[in-house]
Computed example of a mutant assay.
Amino acid sequence: MKTLPYKSRLELNASGDFQAQLTRWGPDYQDPSTFIDLFKTGSSYNMMDYSNPTFDDLLVKASVDEATKPADRWNTYIEAEKQLIKEDAASAPLYQNAVASLENAKLKNYERFPYASTMLKYVYLEK
């Protein structure tokens, strides 16, 4: 095992010459696809070249066939995640980011956004 600078890691990813990798990914929008689509066959983020037709079919089913059926779509993503993690052991999530904060009761117009920067333009303290 060795720690690599980012540039060296990118070169190693491109070569495919590794057995396992500890890395991270943060969501950029609030949907399961922000994580699970990384492992689609042919995805540019699928550095390990994971490929499973059953998994890929589930992603198509969730994103196309069930695009307007939220409950069905959610359950299909759960199936895909089970295939990826439980059946194939292609990924092993180790950490989930969280933030704890204290908030003054006089603070007004403060909104938390789970996947975006906090906007403070209209925030004020009530007198």
Rank of each mutant, 00 (worst) to 15 (best):
N46D: 03
T41G: 15
T76A: 02
G16N: 01
N109G: 09
Y124H: 02
N75R: 03
S91T: 12
Q21V: 10
L12F: 02
F113N: 15
A67L: 15
P53V: 03
F35L: 06
P27D: 15
A116E: 12
S8E: 15
K61S: 08
R9M: 14
G16R: 01
D57V: 05
V99H: 05
E79C: 01
E11I: 07
V123N: 04
A62L: 02
K106A: 08
F55I: 00
L125C: 07
A67H: 13
K69P: 08
T41D: 04
A14D: 09
S44T: 13
N46H: 05
Y6M: 14
T34I: 01
T23M: 01
T23H: 00
K127R: 12
L10F: 10
D72K: 15
E103C: 09
Y115A: 11
V64S: 05
Y6R: 10
L107M: 10
Y122G: 11
Y110V: 09
D31V: 03
P93C: 00
P53W: 03
S51Y: 00
F35G: 01
S51I: 05
S63A: 09
S101Q: 14
K108F: 02
D37A: 04
T118E: 15
L59S: 02
A98F: 14
P32A: 03
M1A: 11
E111T: 10
N52H: 01
N104A: 11
L107K: 06
R73L: 04
T118K: 14
A116H: 07
N75D: 12
N104P: 03
T68P: 07
E111W: 11
L4Q: 07
R9F: 15
A71S: 09
F113S: 14
S15R: 05
Y124W: 05
M48L: 12
P93M: 08
D31I: 11
S117I: 13
P93S: 05
A80G: 07
Q21G: 14
F18E: 06
T118I: 13
T23V: 04
N97P: 06
T118M: 13
S15L: 02
M48E: 06
N109P: 14
A100L: 10
R112Y: 15
E111N: 12
L12I: 00
T54G: 12
N52V: 05
D28W: 12
K108T: 03
R9C: 12
Y115K: 11
L120Y: 15
S63E: 15
Q30C: 13
A105F: 06
P5V: 04
L22F: 11
R73A: 10
